[in-house]
Amino acid sequence: MADETFETARQPEAPATHTTIIHEAPRSSSGIGIIMALILLVVVVGGIYLFSKTSGESVRDNAIAEAASDVGNAATKVGDAAENAVNTNK
Rank of each mutant, 00 (worst) to 15 (best):
V42A: 12
V71S: 00
A67V: 02
G72T: 10
E83V: 01
A14C: 01
T19N: 08
M36V: 15
A2F: 05
K53D: 03
G72Y: 14
P12V: 12
L40K: 14
G31T: 07
A37I: 02
G47R: 06
G72F: 15
N84H: 09
T8W: 11
R27E: 00
T54R: 05
I32V: 08
I34Q: 15
N87L: 08
V45W: 10
N62R: 10
T17D: 02
D80G: 07
T88C: 09
V86H: 01
A81R: 08
D61H: 08
H18F: 15
A82I: 00
I39S: 14
Y49N: 04
A2Y: 04
P15K: 14
S28W: 00
N87P: 02
A14E: 01
A16N: 08
G56R: 06
A2M: 11
E57W: 03
D70T: 06
E7I: 04
T5E: 13
D3L: 07
T8R: 08
L41R: 01
E13S: 07
Q11R: 12
H18T: 15
V44G: 06
S28A: 04
N87I: 05
V59G: 09
F51K: 04
I34M: 15
T20Q: 12
T20M: 11
A67K: 08
S29H: 00
T5I: 12
H23V: 15
T54C: 05
K90M: 12
V45P: 04
A67S: 11
N73V: 01
A63L: 07
